[in-house]
């Protein structure tokens, strides 16, 4: 599938950008030219040769903070998305096949999670599991998992009732076979889109948790954290939030682009179908 994605221009751009972000995540902390935590007296400075992106309100080098924070930010966002994926998608697909009781329980759990106040849940979990980045990401992943649950369940439901699945069942297919051969491909594209969106939301949530003192502890930098602190000084440095914003945007955009590309290559059949319908309509349009 990756090869098919790479055949699309949008797929190549998306993978290029994400590759660059991954590079930042791995080598960012090494590449940081200055200590991201050490303040100087030169506060809220404009970009200069010494500070390529200027400094923040404590005089810390913004470029270094962004580079150093990239690993935590990216890993955090990916972790959120993956936890949501596992916690949401698997029961979402299985809820269609594992009988009424499982369906009922998972549906109610998903409803409960949606209804739960986010912050209260976050505080409760950190109280239970201790305050750390993995715990924080875990909380966020669980909180957004109902989205994945519902998307996966809806896609599975529409496939499970289709005649081609019935045909496979009449030929003796097991649930596992049906999921592997028929369901998975149909569930993947909407999940990819949800995953892309969630990754974007993940950056923002990680930083807002930082604000509450959950997860990443200040003064450790994250992209979202840098953005939040820069926003406080808009009147002094109106251009300052641009750099972290650009990073977050590029990542989210690339994720969405990739999701679209995945949808396009897997949805090929759907498009071929659409084309033939259009042709057929040409000769049989109703009044």
């Amino acid at each position: 599938m990756i090869r098919r994605v790479l055949r699309l221009t949008s797929g190549r751009i998306a993978i290029g950008i994400l590759g660059f972000i991954a590079f930042l995540a791995v080598f960012g902390p090494i590449l940081a030219p200055q200590d991201p935590l050490e303040g100087t007296t030169d506060i809220l400075a404009n970009p200069s040769s010494a500070h390529l992106l200027g400094t923040d309100y404590l005089g810390r080098d913004v470029l270094s903070r962004l580079l150093d924070g990239s690993r935590v930010s990216v890993l955090g966002a990916v972790q959120v998305a993956l936890i949501a994926l596992v916690v949401g998608v698997v029961p979402g697909i299985l809820s269609v096949y594992f009988g009424r009781a499982f369906e009922w329980v998972t549906l109610r759990l998903a409803d409960t999670l949606v209804a739960l106040p986010f912050l209260v849940f976050a505080v409760a979990v950190t109280a239970l599991l201790g305050n750390g980045i993995p715990q924080a990401m875990f909380v966020v992943g669980i909180m957004v998992s109902p989205l994945f649950y519902r998307v996966a369940r809806a896609a599975t439901l529409s496939v499970a009732r289709s005649q081609y699945v019935e045909a496979a069942i009449v030929a003796g297919a097991s649930v596992g076979w049906v999921v592997r051969k028929h369901v998975w491909v149909k569930v993947l594209p909407p999940i990819a889109v949800a995953l892309a969106n969630t990754t974007g939301v993940g950056f923002v949530i990680v930083s807002s948790l930082t604000f509450l003192g959950i997860g990443v502890q200040p003064p450790a930098p994250t992209w979202g954290g840098v953005l939040a602190s820069e926003l406080g000084y808009l009147s002094f440095q109106p251009w300052a939030p641009l750099a972290p914003t650009a990073l977050i945007m590029a990542t989210v955009w690339a994720c969405n682009l990739l999701a679209d590309a995945i949808r396009d290559v897997t949805g090929q059949a759907g498009r071929a179908l659409l084309n033939t319908r259009k042709v057929a309509d040409g000769s049989a349009v109703t009044a």
Binding site: Q163, Y164, A171, G172, K181, K186, G270
Partner: peptide
């Protein structure tokens, strides 16, 4: 049932061929 079906002794050709074929296969 699955074991019997797997022997392929009985088959069902559905009414609507478009809907009974997986569009992605």
């Amino acid at each position: 049932w699955r074991a019997l079906r797997r022997r392929g002794l009985v088959q069902y050709v559905f009414q609507d061929p478009l809907r009974s074929l997986d569009p992605d296969l």
